[in-house]
C-alpha cells in the first residue's frame, strides 16, 4: 500500500488571518491517496474540505505541514494537479474542442497531438457531437464534462474535484457520477474529490476521508470494503449491494454527531 502512495498530506494546518487573530480552518490533517484510487473528502460544511483541496492544488499555502506528490514537495499550482471546480469554468469564448485543447496549448503540446488527445477525451465524455459548439449552448452537466475532459487531456497525475456536481440537478448528477466511474475504469486516473453528499461519496469512493468541523480535523478514514471486487456501474447496483444501508447509516451518524457537537458547543 505504502509503495503505491501518490499523494501524501502530512500534519497540515491552516489558519486564515483575520483582524481578531485568525480563523483555524484545518488542524493537523494527515492522509494519503494511492495510485488509481478515487478518494473522497467528506464532512459537514465548515470542515475545511474545500480548503484542503485548494491546498493540495497549490492555490492556498498551508500554515504548517507538508504535502508531496510522487515524493516531490508541493509548492504552488501545477499541471500535475489538475482541478475541476463546482462553478462552470468552460471558457465561453472557446469552443468545446478549443476548451479541451487549452491546457495542452499552454504546455506547448504540438498541434496534431493536441487535436488527437482532445478528440479522444471529448469522445470519452460523450461530447463528440458538440465539439464545435460554444459553452453557451451546453447544459450544466455538459459544461462539467468539458471541464473534466480538459483536465484529463492535460495528463495530470491526480485529478482534484471540488464538489463538481454540486450545481447539477439530481438526475444529471447520477449520470455524471456513473460516467466518472466509467472514466476511472478506462483510464488510469487518480482522483481526490470533495463532496458533502453521502450517497455520492459511497458511490464513487474507494476510500472516504471523513473530516470534522471547526476546525477541520481528520475524524476517520473509511475503507468501503463492501464494494471491493463488486462491479458497480449504476446507482441501482449500489443500492442493491449487501452492506450498503449499514455503510450509509454509519456515515449519516458521523455527520449527525458532528452537527450535534456543533450545536452543543
Amino acid at each position: 500500500m505504502q509503495s503505491s502512495t501518490i499523494l501524501s498530506v502530512q500534519n497540515v494546518c491552516k489558519t486564515f488571518p483575520t483582524r481578531g487573530g485568525g480563523v483555524e480552518a484545518l488542524r493537523d490533517v494527515s492522509f494519503s491517496v494511492a495510485r488509481n484510487e478515487l478518494c473522497v473528502l467528506l464532512g459537514p460544511s465548515g470542515c475545511g474540505k474545500s480548503t484542503l483541496l485548494n491546498i493540495v492544488a497549490g492555490l492556498h499555502t498551508p500554515t504548517s505541514g507538508t504535502l508531496s506528490l510522487e515524493g516531490r514537495p508541493i509548492h504552488g499550482p501545477a499541471r500535475e494537479r489538475g482541478m475541476v471546480f463546482q462553478s462552470y469554468t468552460s471558457f465561453p469564448w472557446l469552443t468545446v474542442l478549443e476548451n479541451v485543447e487549452y491546457g495542452m496549448k499552454l504546455n506547448g503540446i504540438p498541434k496534431a497531438e493536441r487535436r488527437e488527445r482532445a478528440l479522444h477525451y471529448i469522445d470519452l465524455v460523450h461530447l463528440t457531437k458538440f465539439r464545435d459548439a460554444y459553452p453557451k449552448t451546453l447544459s450544466g452537466g455538459m459544461k462539467q464534462r468539458v471541464a473534466i475532459a480538459r483536465t484529463l487531456a492535460n495528463a495530470p497525475e491526480i485529478l482534484l474535484m471540488d464538489e463538481p456536481y454540486g450545481a447539477l440537478d439530481a438526475e444529471t448528477r447520477w449520470h455524471m457520477q456513473e460516467m466518472l466511474l466509467d472514466i476511472m475504469r478506462t483510464t488510469q486516473t487518480t482522483i481526490l474529490l470533495v463532496t458533502h453528499d453521502i450517497q455520492e461519496a459511497i458511490f464513487l469512493a474507494d476510500r472516504i476521508v471523513f473530516l470534522s468541523a471547526h476546525p477541520g480535523r481528520l475524524k476517520t478514514i473509511l475503507e468501503l470494503d463492501f464494494k471491493k471486487g463488486k462491479e458497480i456501474r449504476s446507482k441501482e447496483d449500489l443500492v442493491e449491494l449487501e452492506g450498503y444501508p449499514e455503510c450509509e447509516r454509519e456515515i449519516m451518524h458521523l455527520m449527525r454527531n458532528e452537527a450535534k457537537q456543533e450545536e452543543d458547543a
Binding site: 492544488a57 497549490g58 492555490l59 499550482p77 501545477a78 499541471r79 494537479r81 489538475g82 482541478m83 471546480f85 462553478s87 469554468t89 471558457f91 469564448w93 487549452y102 491546457g103 499552454l106 504546455n107 471541464a147 480538459r150 483536465t151 492535460n154 482534484l160
Partner: peptide, 27 residues
C-alpha cells in the same frame, strides 16, 4: 473576471503571462 476561471488556467499549468493573455483579457 471569475476567480475560478483564473484558477482553472493556473491549475492547468498556465504561467502568469499566459493567464493574463488567455483568460483575463478575453474574459
Amino acid at each position: 473576471v471569475p476567480k475560478d476561471l483564473i484558477n482553472t488556467s493556473v491549475t492547468l499549468g498556465g504561467s502568469r503571462w499566459q493567464v493574463l493573455r488567455t483568460v483575463v483579457v478575453p474574459a
